[in-house]
Design a binder for these strands. Sequence first.
DNA 1: AGTAAATGATCTACACTGTAGAGATCTACA
DNA 2: TGTAGATCTCTACAGTGTAGATCATTTACT
Lengths: 211, 211
Amino acid sequence: MSGKREEILDAALAIADERGLGAVSMRAVAQAVGVTPMALYPHVKDKAGLLDAMLGRLLAGVYAAAPAMAGDTGWRERLRVFAFTARSLSVGHPWVASLVFSRPAVTADAVTTIDLLYGALLDAGVPPAQVPRLERLVGTFVLGWIASESGGRFGPGGTDPRGRRGRLHQGPLPGHEALATWLERPVDWDAEFEADVADLERLVESVAARG
Amino acid sequence: MSGKREEILDAALAIADERGLGAVSMRAVAQAVGVTPMALYPHVKDKAGLLDAMLGRLLAGVYAAAPAMAGDTGWRERLRVFAFTARSLSVGHPWVASLVFSRPAVTADAVTTIDLLYGALLDAGVPPAQVPRLERLVGTFVLGWIASESGGRFGPGGTDPRGRRGRLHQGPLPGHEALATWLERPVDWDAEFEADVADLERLVESVAARG
DNA sequence: AGTAAATGATCTACACTGTAGAGATCTACA
DNA sequence: TGTAGATCTCTACAGTGTAGATCATTTACT
């Protein structure tokens, strides 16, 4: 009966969603389950193992959204499904992105997600020798983007913080000056992600055409 | 006299390089400097502030490699300088990548690095309205790539761990099967990064041509 | 030169963290 | 019934970041 493991994961996910990944401690999870901290260890090996399992739960959600449209749908749709469900998952669970970069993508859930992308790229006509590379390229960008968005690299709020070129500078910033007009405006992150994915599709297309 | 601050950063960087980011504790840094832990606080505000400052030091290295070839060199060279120096820095300091996704890019060092990319993209003929987006796209990919490489997402060693499609699977993996031949082979990460950057250049070119 | 203020460093203490180790309890199978 | 295995509890240890009070030293101003 590994229902206890699921119970532990549920509690850990709830804590991460509500109070951030930093609040996920063995003690906190144990208390949420109604048990002492050491009682988690028969089910979870490690704290790292717990985090891996949490990530797996969310990855399962990524490809769970896909099979409904697998097979006859075009490769574009499948690539977009990956990108957009990954992003939408991360807005509800902002802590995923920081995790995904620190663990090898070898769990069952991760491999299934990757297979989804392999199929899309093959159908797009990408030469098989290039498919693994392009999968990593696409995956890396999407993961990096949502990590930046939810991790704070793009800056807090809707305004691009790079627009605030500070007074505290040694050298000149010709690029920022030339773009001053565009940097003032707030950024529509939905539109930007959409445009990025479209550019990625074109990149895939171009590799397919070249090969 | 803020020489003490530099001394602290030197010690913190040395510890991170030698024993990993996890070994960077206030106590460890203090001991390396030859002082009690609390003596760091007049110089560093926080542990988060210390990590930010460490990241800043390395970012400074990224654009320090650039001005030598600024101005008359082509945009491709400048884009490549960003990508390759970022990657080469990360092999000596594998901990950067995990930091760069967790802090907004608003420090002086980060802004200067971004300006380098702005200039390159403008020279490439990218419409100004698209330059900030493409800067984020390129930056996100490069950072995501080195985070994956040094953080373990691409798997340990030189062999692609995704080639080891495990026996522990529920569903079939058509993509992995179709690619079996190519997934067996070890990956040349230098060549892959090179190919990715070339694809990125083509992407930039295509946006410039379209606009 | 004398005094006030700021700065730097120290020591103690608190509330955390992950988890090793020893026992207790309960379950399943011989 | 006896025994092996799993699950859980309790205690304890070696860490963590940092708040608070204290003391020394250096700087700035009258």
